[in-house]
Design a protein around this nucleic acid. Sequence first.
DNA 1: CTGAAAGCGCTTACAG
DNA 2: CTGAAAGCGCTTACAG
Lengths: 349, 349
Amino acid sequence: MLLAQRQSKRLTITQIAKEAGVSTTTVSKVLNQLPGVGEQTRARIQAMIEQHDYVQNHAARHLRKGQSGLIDLVIMRLEGGYDIGIMKGVQEVLEESGHRLVISTTNEDEDIERRWLRRIQDQATDGVLLLLPYERIGIADTLMAHNIPVIAIGDRNEPTTAYPTIGSTIWLGGYTATEYLISLGHRRIGIITGPLHLTTSRARLAGYREALERANIPVDPTLICEGNYLLGDGVQQTFALLKHPDPPTAIFAGNDAQAAGVYQALYQHNIRIPDLMSVIGFDDVTYAAQMSPPLTTIHQPLVEMGKMAANLLLRLIAGQTLESNHVELSTSLVLRTSCAPPRQESLPI
Amino acid sequence: MLLAQRQSKRLTITQIAKEAGVSTTTVSKVLNQLPGVGEQTRARIQAMIEQHDYVQNHAARHLRKGQSGLIDLVIMRLEGGYDIGIMKGVQEVLEESGHRLVISTTNEDEDIERRWLRRIQDQATDGVLLLLPYERIGIADTLMAHNIPVIAIGDRNEPTTAYPTIGSTIWLGGYTATEYLISLGHRRIGIITGPLHLTTSRARLAGYREALERANIPVDPTLICEGNYLLGDGVQQTFALLKHPDPPTAIFAGNDAQAAGVYQALYQHNIRIPDLMSVIGFDDVTYAAQMSPPLTTIHQPLVEMGKMAANLLLRLIAGQTLESNHVELSTSLVLRTSCAPPRQESLPI
DNA sequence: CTGAAAGCGCTTACAG
DNA sequence: CTGAAAGCGCTTACAG
């Protein structure tokens, strides 16, 4: 019984044509909603198609038209944060356009990357979306050299690139986060940046400085720590900040992963958030709202960035030209409960 | 300058053949490492292939051989927890086998599902992996009816299914979690289960009961709460548990998302983990280690499950028969810092 | 060892 | 409005 249901044999366009007593040309036309078919004929064929649950052979179509209906999304590493938001957005528009999404992760392995590049070149992709930060961004150049449409998502490091990029207003985010903390009454605000050789890390820091300066608060360099966007950096740098003779009353974490690290460090010292220390993140990754307390953070419109990227890529594929080589969507402040006015008492350490 | 690099025109097998002065048959043979080619000829063609950086046309190959080189993974909803682990595992083996992974999310939308099903039927997939809990599992039957290899990942609800499934030892996980808490000295252990109409939720509960009974601790039904595997359920049920006249000293959360909810509820009441309350989760999702304090939880071997599923699917595709229709990988306890011996003092509420 | 030829299932000028 | 035919780039019997 389990093995029943053999072979609900797939029909070809030829068989449909034969059964309908017309040519494959005509069937193809109704399939593709092309003009030049009598109304009655069209209806009859349409009925037949539905009756048999016919669906076109993908490979044949692909071979003929030179399109695969596939879009590639290349991610360095699956993490469940930033990547998920982007994927969601991309999915959403591809679902509309009828493309399928293939995901590759290179795990920073050059071999895998090379193999991937080969596989991609057999025109088995209509276009590729690169999720930055992608160190080996040379991949984009290779793609372009092979005439494969490509768009990079995330914030580029170079001011201009040959391929289109889509990002968000990082500097403004850094500014907004800091300004918010200041508005709460904070004067001593620690910041744990990302690696400062990245433009995107420096942008956050610049926003932080700008906010401080506008509020006439001198920038204290001993409150600026450099991290690597990893949870562990958040932990370490928080410990360092806590040892400061005059510790900050708030910490701006650079990204949410580092914020999670700040949480852990503070938890160990039994320093309650936001009562004794305010914490603000950056990204608004899925788990930000799940933290205890829920993290106030700068929202990067990940889903929208994914959608925008997919839409632009589709336009590139259609041969249209883009009005701009770089677009930025705006970041925004998401208020949750990890920030409050500065503590009055001193830290219990 | 930016617009340079036009058309690094793709070569066809015919052109390679012509240039090498042989037939396409021969080129095809060396391409596919088939016998029947003179050593010198093979070497010459090989060199030519590499020199021109030739790569086969995917569509043509697909059309001829009836294989797409694509594997589909269907996820109901992208969440960044369970799904990520599975994806990683699947990716890992597909990278080896040379298949590409296409991801679809249906978001429980029947329309999307239907469209997906149509698209999948044009033999544009070699096989599909279904990520459970998939309510509308009828999709698996449809797939089977169309002779598309399918494997479901996650714990099935029915004892037997027509399609192969791969899961983990849930019951044992429930038992292990509870036993661990007991070994720490806990006698009053709250549990927040998943929806009890799911076998997989009941399995955890059964494991919990078994552990209690073995330790001669009477099961207190007022300590058993039902959730829906969502963070909010963790919050709500924890509040309920805290109102209990004789509140538990430990909470077993059913899954990590609910554990995050437990954390939030406890944080609000300023009940420190693990000092005043122990918490244990289930799944060991990516962010479990990022929580404050890092969550002790039952590890589901997500990555391994993904690998196993992909491997079995590949075997199915190759026409092999599986030795069993269901395989379970084992869960294990991951010790982090959210559990400790029961509190001596009473709760500050 | 080597190659000519058919054919996978479509789409698209082109002719009628 | 309708259809015959070529061709997309491969692979695979089959013949030599």
